[in-house]
Write a protein that binds this DNA or RNA. Sequence first.
DNA 1: GGCCAGGACACCA
DNA 2: TGGTGTCATGGC
Length: 214
Amino acid sequence: MTTVTLYQLFKKMLAGMGPQGWWPADTKSEIIVGAILVQNTNWNNVKKSLANVETSTGFQPELIARLDMNDLMALIQPSGFHKNKSKAILEVFQWLGVHDFDFNQIKQHHGENLRRELLKLHGIGEETADVLLLYVFDEPVFVADKYDQQLFTALGLAGLTNYRKLKKRIHQFDEFSLTEAQEFHGLIDEFGKLYLRKADYFNESFLAGYTIKL
DNA sequence: GGCCAGGACACCA
DNA sequence: TGGTGTCATGGC
């Protein structure tokens, strides 16, 4: 058994898998729409919806904010939950529009309250809020999604049964730069798809035999 | 043909 | 706080 720190785990995964280039999108608007659409949904379904939204808006935030709810529902129908998700998308983009879709201005205006403000928006929960902080607002935060919980459980930690419990146990995240934090989340999710979907897969991975100390 | 995917929310105890 | 049902679609 080899014990690693969180940052050592990141380096190990980066060496084992290579850079993942997350988030896979060309614009911040595309990241936001994708982050909402992917909630409990396979990315392949999300891609169909993203293509529809791109065709109709070019991911111009002003156009997305002005979409008719029914039109938006039709565009994102392939990725499921289109009623909830269309509402979430419109709320977020109308909220962004208050500050002219200027992400730096929004960040400055809300300061330390940015995460709390994001959580007030309907359809934005803890994970999506952290994803937006990490990939849209350039804050090096840790995203504690289901794959993270499974990974850290496989690495020997007990009791990580939900988002907050894991999030609370991550103290020493300061050593991660922004790009490293973005890469780390991508690595963990891609690792999860390969090695965590079934119980035994982890033991076949390059992390078998490792434990983590937080 | 059932299961599930890069969650969130309302409702309940 | 913590657990459960619901929301929808497409791939396997």
